[in-house]
Amino acid sequence: MMRKAILSVLLLLGCIIGWAQDEAAVQDWNEATRSYAAHQYRNAAEHYEAIVKKHEASDVVYYNLGNAYYKNGERGKAVLNYKRALKLNASNKQARENISFIHSKTPGAPVVLKDIFFMRWYHAILYKIPANTWAIAALIGFLLVLFVIYRMITGKIRFGYRWLSLSAIVWLLIISFAFTGYRQGKVNTEAVVLSSQAFLYESGDMTKPRMSVPEGTILNLIGQPKEGKVLVRLANGTEGWIDQADVEIV
């Protein structure tokens, strides 16, 4: 009896906490919307950030946050949040176009190529599922291929080669998702330059500046931090070191 009473109290507390969080998110959203309409972009960004930190954010929240930062003159944070919106929803056309617009207005910024439509579908599926889940699916796919081969050998399956071809194609596609997810999550992490005075240093000499890197530049981290700097690769393939404090991971 006591156990049921405790469980009931815990359930009630959980509902109250959940309701309070939802209510707080609505308040932050309303205040952010009001502030944006009143051209108070810094305040709008702060309330969108509150939603991101305290609640589960959607691509719409990140997109609006990017808009608020752009209107406030913070191009780097704008691009960062547009990229986070795309990470949650690769088909967010407005976020992609806004990144291209910002880069077109930024001297020295790399040109962002538009993805082919099927690549947008590919990334939309990829980002919906964690890399570990894709790895498990790849293992299951491999076992499925072995099962089809076994059924072919024992003569217990019709149109065996067709089923084998289909299962092999599905398995290879899943392997592609698993490998890409692992590579992007572990090896080739995307980041955005937030500083207006960032420099790329020679890959062989971290003390020798090579070029300035505009705020809002998208790059890939390809090495572990060392002496306050991290090895990166730009969109044109140029590699070098950049101050770790000047970039933020997407």
Rank of each mutant, 00 (worst) to 15 (best):
S35L: 06
S35T: 07
A37L: 11
A37K: 05
A38C: 04
H39D: 10
R42T: 10
A44V: 07
A45M: 05
A45I: 04
E46Q: 15
Y48M: 09
Y48S: 05
E49V: 08
A50T: 06
A50R: 13
A50I: 02
K53D: 12
K53L: 06
K54A: 11
E56T: 15
A57G: 00
S58W: 00
S58G: 09
S58V: 04
V60C: 02
Y62I: 05
G66R: 03
N67K: 12
N67W: 02
A68Y: 01
Y69P: 05
Y70E: 14
Y70G: 09
N72L: 00
G73T: 03
E74H: 00
A78N: 03
N81E: 06
N81D: 12
R84P: 04
K87C: 01
L88V: 03
L88K: 11
N89I: 08
N89Q: 15
N89T: 11
N89V: 07
N92G: 01
N92I: 04
K93V: 14
E97L: 08
E97A: 10
N98M: 14
I102V: 15
H103L: 13
S104G: 13
T106Q: 02
T106E: 10
P107K: 07
G108P: 13
G108S: 14
G108V: 12
P110D: 05
L113Y: 03
L113K: 14
K114T: 13
K114S: 15
K114G: 14
D115T: 01
I116K: 15
F117N: 15
F117D: 15
F117Q: 12
W121E: 15
Y122T: 09
Y122F: 15
H123G: 01
H123C: 06
I125A: 12
Y127A: 04
I129G: 00
I129T: 12
P130R: 01
P130G: 06
A131I: 01
A135N: 04
A137D: 02
L139P: 02
L144V: 13
V145L: 08
L146H: 04
V148H: 10
I149F: 05
Y150Q: 11
M152N: 09
T154P: 07
T154Y: 10
G155S: 06
K156V: 06
I157Q: 03
I157W: 00
